[in-house]
Amino acid sequence: MPSLKELRARIQGVKSQRKITSAMKMVAASKLRRFQLRAEASRPYADAMRRMLSELAAATRHESELPLLMQGGPGRTHLLVMLTSDLGLAGGFNANLARAMRGIVERLEGEGETVRILTVGRKGGDAMTRAYPDQVTMRQPGTAGREVEFARALEMGKQIEEMLVSGEIDRVTVVYNRFINAMTQTPTTLPLVPLPVPENDNRDDMAAQYDFEPNEEEILAHILPRNLQVQIYAALLESAAGEQGARMTAMDNATRNAGSAIDSLTQRYNRSRQANITTELIEIISGAEAV
C-alpha cells in the first residue's frame, strides 16, 4: 500500500503528463490542418499532369523504345523509398509501415529481385537498419513536422533519376502511410518506375488530334522527371498529414487514459486517507476507554 505522500506525488505526475499530451494533441491538430491545405493546393498540378501523361502515353503507344523513367531499367534491382517520421509518440504510425515494408521486401526478394532501401525519417531509418542492414543504401532525415517544401521532392526526384540513369536501380516504389482520416493511415505502395500508365479518359477522336510541340518524345523527356517529383511531393505531404493525424489520435487517447488514471488514483488516495483517519480515531477512542 503506497503512502499518502507517494499517492499525491503520482497524481501530480499524471496530471502534468496529461497537460503535455493534451498540448501535443492540439499542436498536431493544427499541423494536420496545414498539411491538408497544402496537399489540397498541390492537387491541380498533379491532376493536370496526369491528364497530359495519359495523352502522351496514348500518342506514344506504338513506340518500341520508351524512356527509362517510363519503363524502368533492364535489371532487377528495386529501390523502395520509405517515408516515415522523425519523431515518435504517433501510435503505430511508423511500426505499421515497418511491418508492411518487411512483407514487401520478403515478397520482392522471393521473386528474385535485389532490394535496396532509401529511408526518409529517423524512425524508418532505425527500423530498417535493424531489419535489413545490407539493403539500406541511403538514410535521409524527415521533415520533423515542419513544412514540406517542393524543393525537397525536387531533390529526391533528381537523386532517384540519377540512380536510374547510372543503372544502379531499375525500378522504384514509394512505401508510405496514406492519409485516410485522423484515425486511419494505411500503408500504401506507389509504383513510380515503371510508371503505371494512367488511363486515357477521353477515348474519342480528340486524343488522335493532339499536336505536340516540339514532339512527343521531347515533351515526355521533360515531363517524366517532373512527374516523379510531383508524385514524391504528394506522398511526402500525405505522410506528413498522416503523421500528425496519428499523433493527434495517440495523444487524444493518452490524455483520456491520464484522466481515468487520475480518477482512480484520487479515489485510492481518498480511501486510504479515510482509512487512516478511522484507524487513528479507533486508537484514540480505545485509548480513552482503557484509562
Binding site: 499536336d211 510541340e213 521533360h222
Partner: peptide, 19 residues
C-alpha cells in the same frame, strides 16, 4: 512563351501540348 516561339491560346484552338 513556347520553347520554339510564342504561341497564342485562343478559343477553338486545336489540342496542343507544348514545352
Amino acid at each position: 512563351p513556347g520553347a520554339e516561339g510564342d504561341i497564342a491560346a485562343m478559343p477553338d484552338h486545336a489540342p496542343l501540348m507544348l514545352v
